[in-house]
């Protein structure tokens, strides 16, 4: 059975490979993850190490991308910052996806009053702007990386619930669901083995793209001081720190800004590529 599964993967990879941008994006994301993991090894200095004598040093062989007000190496802080940003992006999406898919699956599979209850609740939930919700939650829970992740995750639930529900409504009509019931499969088995695997394609695309959005949201929260707390580096927080000196030391905002942009862009491009790679196989 195993070799066949692999061949499905290979086929998927062949499809994805046709989209050059998606491949570039994938490489970028892999690099980003490596950077985040290897930050302690790659970074020339510890992220919080201050060199007061080198305040606002320009880029040089000592500080490749210069240093900030406290003389901390910008490159090291960017490398370490990748950790917080990716953490925020990935974990919050994971929270949102698990809760959202669960709720959407319940609503879509059972329909009726359960569907109504869940979806109306989400309607109310969605009537609040996501960022406001995140700010409120982060304010209540207190500013920290963990709470920012929770806030962003909780804020992104409705999107997944809706998408899952819509996809399930089409899968639910398929005859293999009836066939499964005819051989005494329980609802849990049907949802887990038949429904969800066949709903994954649009969800995977959405999850990939959403990682980018959540990185952005995380940077936003950190920018307004509700995310990662000093001295831990985070791209959004770094932009925020540099905002008062934007005119004199533009690069201090530019570099973290570029990092955010590249990671978000990579997620979106990969998502696009995945959509193309996953779709044609489902059609035939």
């Amino acid at each position: 059975m195993k070799p066949k599964k692999e061949s499905q993967l290979i086929e998927f990879w062949l499809q994805l490979r046709k989209n050059k941008l998606a491949v570039v994006a994938l490489v970028l994301l892999v690099l980003l993850v490596l950077v985040a993991i290897l930050a302690p090894v790659l970074a020339p200095y510890p992220y919080a190490e201050m060199h007061p004598e080198d305040s606002y040093a320009p880029s040089s062989s000592k500080y490749l991308l210069g240093s900030d007000k406290l003389g901390r190496d910008v490159l090291s802080r960017l490398l370490w910052g990748a950790r917080q940003s990716l953490e925020m992006g990935i974990i919050s999406v994971a929270i949102a996806a698990v809760v959202g898919i669960f709720l959407g699956a319940l609503a879509g599979y059972y329909g009726g009053w359960k569907d109504n209850l869940i979806m109306r609740f989400l309607d109310v939930y969605e009537s609040m702007p996501m960022m406001l919700l995140c700010i409120t939650l982060a304010a209540i829970l207190g500013p920290s990386l963990r709470n920012a992740i929770i806030a962003i995750g909780v804020g992104s639930v409705p999107g997944y619930a809706r998408l899952t529900r819509a996809t399930i409504l089409t899968v639910r009509e398929k005859e293999y669901i009836e066939a499964a019931r005819a051989i005494n499969s329980s609802d849990a088995i049907i949802i887990v083995k038949h429904v969800i695997p066949n709903c994954m394609a649009p969800l995977i695309v959405d999850i990939t793209m959403n990682v980018g959005n959540c990185i952005l949201a995380g940077a936003g929260l950190s920018y307004i001081g509700l995310g990662v707390q000093a001295p831990v580096p985070e791209w959004g927080a770094m932009i925020s720190e540099a905002r008062n000196i934007l005119r004199d030391h533009f690069s201090l905002s530019l570099y973290p800004g570029i990092c955010v942009m590249i990671s978000v862009l990579a997620c979106n491009l990969l998502g696009d590529g995945l959509r193309d790679a996953l779709d044609p196989r489902l059609k035939n």
Binding site: K174, Y176, K193, H194, P197, N198
Partner: peptide, 10 residues
């Protein structure tokens, strides 16, 4: 539509 596309024959 009567076979789950994610399940092999066996």
């Amino acid at each position: 539509s009567s076979l789950n596309p994610r399940m092999s024959v066996s």
